[in-house]
Amino acid sequence: MKGPQLLQHNSGVLRTSVGAAFPGSHAVYRGKNLHRDLQQLDWVALYAYGVIGRHLAPEQLELVQALWVSTSYPDSRLWNNRVAALAGNARSSVNLGMIAGVAVSEATVYGGNAALRSMRFLQTTLERVRAGEALADIVWGETAQRRIYGYGRPINSTDERLPVILAIAERLGLHQGAHLALAFEIEKVLLTRYQQLHMNFTALHAALVADMGLSVREYQLLRVPVFMGGMAPCVAEATEKPEGTLFPTPCAAVAYEGPAARAWTGR
């Protein structure tokens, strides 16, 4: 079925397997009665269940929550927090500010897109290694065409989140997955040529989630709230400041290289 036939098949009706609301009666969530069957779940468990359609194990949920907590930096100088905070300081609505911050969190260099590319590389590389290819050949072949996301970090190449998350993963018994082991082997290869390319949180996060059996698309959905814990206090504080006082830029600080000022004469 395709074209007009496909459109006609879906006209006037929502065909869904994820759920539906029946006002005045009940709500179905992934085949379960939301208010009867799922009230015992905490929000992280419900969110993950909604994304992947199966329940993660308690230790996996605890690790996901630890990953989110570890990225909750309430620093308005960070790229996505800055957008959200500036919106709040400009007296935009809280929802619009937060949504704007979440939207730019998809950044390619060090945001959501970097994480997706890292996970995709880990998954495909693991398949190739298991098929007999040499890891070093794969790594140098990749770097010859594009960067390998999840390695290196601006300002300081040491990522303070790694030892925290690795300790939690070890306590939960989630530190021996194939993707995580591969991530460390890739780091070893990269460091033979580039001493600054230590593994960062992106590769760690992607590897741990890949070892949970999630797809790249599921990972993209799962990580949406990853920075929100740090973003919210930035917006809250920015709304308390006088309007326009968050990161104001004086004209003298603007380096202008355009056309010179023109003299205007009246007629």
Results as ranks from 00 to 15, higher is better:
F121K: 05
A131I: 07
N156T: 10
A252G: 03
G244D: 08
A48V: 05
L135A: 09
H198E: 01
F121N: 10
G19I: 06
W68M: 15
T124Y: 01
A100N: 05
N10V: 04
L116V: 01
T265Y: 08
E187A: 01
G24D: 04
T239Y: 06
M119V: 04
V69Y: 15
D37P: 03
A100C: 12
V109R: 11
K32Y: 04
L126H: 02
V102F: 09
V226N: 09
R77G: 09
H35M: 03
G31N: 01
H35C: 01
G97N: 07
N81S: 11
L204D: 02
A252E: 11
L191F: 04
V164G: 02
L174W: 05
G141Y: 04
K241R: 15
F247T: 05
T192M: 08
A144S: 15
F184L: 06
Q39A: 06
T249V: 15
M228D: 13
L67Y: 06
A85M: 09
G53S: 02
L14R: 11
T125P: 11
A255G: 04
G19M: 06
R15S: 04
L41Y: 08
R36Q: 07
Y110I: 10
Y110D: 07
E187D: 02
L191D: 02
L67F: 10
G24W: 04
A57G: 00
G150E: 14
F201H: 12
R262L: 14
H179I: 01
A167S: 15
K2W: 14
W264C: 10
R128M: 03
A90T: 06
A87D: 06
N156V: 13
L214V: 09
V254C: 07
K32M: 00
N113E: 13
L180Q: 01
I168S: 09
A45T: 02
H55W: 07
V139S: 07
G3T: 14
S105N: 10
R146S: 15
S70D: 11
H55R: 09
G152M: 10
E133C: 10
V94T: 13
S105Q: 10
A20R: 14
M199K: 02
N95E: 13
G101H: 07
I52T: 14
R120S: 12
R91K: 11
S70Y: 03
W140N: 12
Q39S: 08
P225M: 11
A103N: 13
Q60D: 04
A66K: 14
A236C: 05
Q65I: 02
A57L: 11
L34Y: 00
A87I: 09
M228E: 12
N81R: 09
V13F: 11
N80S: 15
H35P: 00
V189E: 02
C251M: 11
Q8T: 11
E240D: 08
N156C: 13
A85Y: 12
L162P: 06
A90I: 05
E106D: 09
L222A: 06
E160Q: 13
